[in-house]
Design a protein around this nucleic acid. Structure first.
Lengths: 341, 341
DNA sequence: TTATTTTTTACAAACGTTTGCACATTCATA
DNA sequence: TATGAATGTGCAAACGTTTGTAAAAAATAA
C-alpha cells in the first residue's frame, strides 16, 4: 500500500473546507466552530495526518529545535547534561540537535554554521577548549533570533544565559578538606588558564590555602591538560617536591596521580592524598576509591534547558545561574569506601 | 546593525540574475558558466549568505537529518555509539536529532512521531526494553521514505539494516579462555532469554564447553537479570556448587560476583575466575581488574552510521552487520594489570 | 424589515528554495 | 545559410504550512 503523506489539503478536500480552516482547527484556534474543529480532528486521525514540521517551520520562520554543542558526547559529564536537557526540552515540545567539537575550534565553527543554517530556535553550548574567543559565535548570533545558553565553559561577553558550576567553592571545599585532614603540602593540577572554570578552581585552591595561612608555592601548581598521562607525570613532580596531597581539576588526571603514587609505593591516603573533580563514576571503583568534587551535571542540564525555555518564551533576556558543587569524600583522602549501584 | 538573513533572492538582485541561477551556481551545477558561478560565490560570501535548510528541505521533500533513538544517552555504551555515529554523519553532511526512551515504549512511540514529523531522512534505533513489538515502528516507516537502521537491540521483522554484536563469539572466546587457563567447572550468568543478544551469548558458552568435551550442567546456568545484586547472589550459588570460574553476560553482575568471591575469602583468579561483558570502564579499575568481552560501541556507532549512509544513497536495501567482539584479559582471569597509556 | 455586530470561513500571499521546461545564445556541421 | 546540437539562463510552479484580510453567514439590535 503506497500512500504518500496526508496534508491539510487532503483533510480540507475530504471535508469540503479550506486548508486554512484545517490549519486553524488543528492549532485549536477558538475562532473555529467547535463542531468543525472536531470534524477536522477526526478526519486527521482517520487519514493518519502528521504535521509537516518542515513546512510549518519555514512558514513560521522559526523551528522547534534546539542545538547543543559539546566537546564530546561520550563523557559522563556531558552525556548526563545532554540526557537531562533532552528530557526537559522534549517535554516542552522541542527537539535536540547534537554537535561535537572534539575540542577543535574549527569544528565549533562548523557546528554553529550547521545549526544556524538549520534555523534552530536556540543553541546550548559548552565551548571547545581550543576556541580562542567568542568571535565565531558572536557572528552566528548577530542578526539572528537564535537564543544562546552557555554552560560549564562560557564566555562572558556574549548575550543570553550562562550556567556554570560553583567551581571556586568546589575547589575551595576540596582543599579545605585536605587541610583539615592534616595535609601540609598540597599541590594542584589546575588545567588551562584560558578557561574560566579552571581559573575559578585555581582561585578556590588559592583561597583555601590563604585562609589556612599556608603559603602558595607556584612550583606546586601544574597548569595544562588534565588527562591521565599528565596526571601521572605531574604527581611524580609533586611527590618529588615532597607534597603530601594533590588537588586536581579533573578526575582522569587524579586517576593518573593515584596510579603514580601507588607505583611509587606510597600509601594512599596515609602518605599521599588525592582529590579529583567531576565525580566520574569510576572514582567510586578505584582502589582506594577517590574523593572528588561532584559537579552535578544532571542539574546543570536541567538548568540550562530551563534557561533556554525561558529565553525562548521571552521571559528573560539572560541570566547567570550557578550550580552547586559538592565534595564527595572517599578513601583517597581518608574517607570510607562507598557503595555504588 | 539589524540585518535579516540574506537569501538567494538578495544575491540574484545584486547581480542582476535570477534566484534559480544563484541556486544552481551555489549547488555547483555544471550548466552554469564558471564565471557566473564564481561571481555568485563571491557575492554570497560578501553578503554572509547561509542557506536556509528549512526551505531547502521543504522543497526537496527530504531533510539532511538523521534521528537516533536510544534508551539513555548517559550510558557509556550508547554515548560512545552516538559519538561515533555523529562524527560519521556530520562528515557526510547530515545532522543528528537525539531522542531518549528511558526504556519506555510510550516514549519510543513519541520519539518516532517527532522524528517522522520532522521528516528525518533516516532513523537509527536501539529499542527500549519495554517495547513489546515492532508494530509502532512499522507504522512509522510504512509509506514514508524514512530509512531504518537498528542497532544492538533489534527486531528481525523490520526493513532496513541491522547492526549487532557478535555475542556468540564473545561468549565463546571468554569461556574458551577460561578453559585454556585450566578452570574445570565454569558457571554462567546468561541474562534474559527474551533478548536475542543474551541467547546468543548463552549459545557461545555452550559451544565452548562442548568443544572442550565439558559437560553442560544446567544447575550452573543462571538466567534472569544481570545487575550487581544478582551477580553477588548467583556467584554464591556457583561457589557452593564448586565452580572455579564464572562467565557473565554483563559487567555489573560480574562486579557483584567478584565482590562475593572476595567476601568469601577466595583468591581471584587463583581460586575463582570471573569474566564479564561490555568492558565498562570500571572493569579496568577494580581490584583485581576484571576481564571482559569488549563490545566496541564506537565501532558499532560507525557501522550503524555507515549503514545508514548506504541506505540513504540507495547502495543497498538492507544489510545485517555483525560487529566483532574481543576479549580483554585482565587480572580476574589471570591476566596482568594494564598499564596506563 | 433593515442595519449592525459577531462569528465563522475562504482567499491568497508568503516563507526560501529547487527544478522541469522553455528560451536564447553560441558554435560547429553540412 | 540553414540545421542541429551544446551551452547557459530565465520563468514559474511547487513543497505544506500559516496568517492578514476580506467576505459570507448568522445573530442581534433597531
Amino acid at each position: 500500500m503506497i500512500m504518500s503523506k496526508t496534508t491539510i489539503v487532503d483533510i480540507a478536500l475530504a471535508l469540503g473546507i479550506t486548508p486554512s480552516t484545517v490549519s486553524r482547527a488543528l492549532a485549536g484556534n477558538k475562532k473555529i466552530k467547535a463542531s468543525t474543529r472536531e470534524a477536522v480532528r477526526a478526519k486527521a486521525k482517520e487519514l493518519g495526518y502528521e504535521r509537516n514540521e518542515v513546512a510549518s517551520n519555514l512558514r513560521r520562520g522559526v523551528t522547534k529545535t534546539v542545538g547543543i554543542i559539546v566537546p564530546r558526547i561520550n563523557r559522563e559529564f556531558f552525556s548526563s547534561i545532554i540526557s537531562k536537557a533532552e528530557a526537559v526540552l522534549v517535554e516542552a515540545g522541542y527537539s535536540l540537535l547534537i554537535c561535537q567539537t572534539y575540542e577543535k575550534a574549527e569544528n565549533e565553527i562548523r557546528a554553529l554554521k550547521t545549526l544556524s543554517s538549520s534555523r534552530v530556535a536556540g543553541i546550548m553550548i559548552s565551548h571547545s577548549a581550543e576556541t580562542p574567543s567568542s568571535k565565531a559565535i558572536k557572528e552566528t548570533i548577530r542578526g539572528s533570533k537564535i537564543k544562546l545558553v552557555q554552560f560549564d565553559r562560557v564566555f562572558e561577553d556574549l548575550p543570553g544565559s550562562r550556567v556554570v558550576n560553583d567551581d571556586f567553592n568546589g575547589a575551595y571545599m576540596a582543599v579545605k578538606h585536605l587541610i583539615e585532614r592534616g595535609y601540609k603540602k598540597i599541590g594542584a593540577m589546575v588545567g588551562y588558564d584560558t578557561c574560566l572554570a579552571f581559573v575559578n578552581r585555581y582561585k578556590g585552591y588559592e583561597a583555601a590555602l590563604k585562609e589556612a595561612g599556608m603559603p602558595l608555592d607556584k612550583a606546586l601548581v601544574f597548569p595544562g591538560t588534565i588527562v591521565r598521562e599528565t596526571g601521572y607525570a605531574n604527581a611524580g613532580k609533586a611527590i618529588d617536591a615532597a607534597c603530601d596531597a594533590l588537588y586536581s581539576s579533573g578526575d582522569f588526571s587524579a586517576l593518573g596521580a593515584l596510579e603514580c603514587a601507588l607505583a611509587r609505593g606510597l600509601r594512599v591516603p596515609e602518605d599521599f592524598a588525592i582529590v579529583g573533580t567531576a565525580n566520574e563514576s569510576f572514582t567510586a571503583l578505584t582502589t582506594p576509591s577517590m574523593s572528588s568534587v561532584n559537579q552535578n551535571p544532571s542539574d546543570m542540564g536541567r538548568q540550562a534547558a530551563e534557561a533556554m525555555l525561558r529565553l525562548l518564551k521571552g521571559d528573560t533576556a539572560g541570566e547567570e545561574i550557578i550550580v552547586d558543587t559538592e565534595l564527595i569524600v572517599r578513601e583517597s583522602t581518608g574517607g570510607k569506601k562507598q557503595q555504588i549501584k
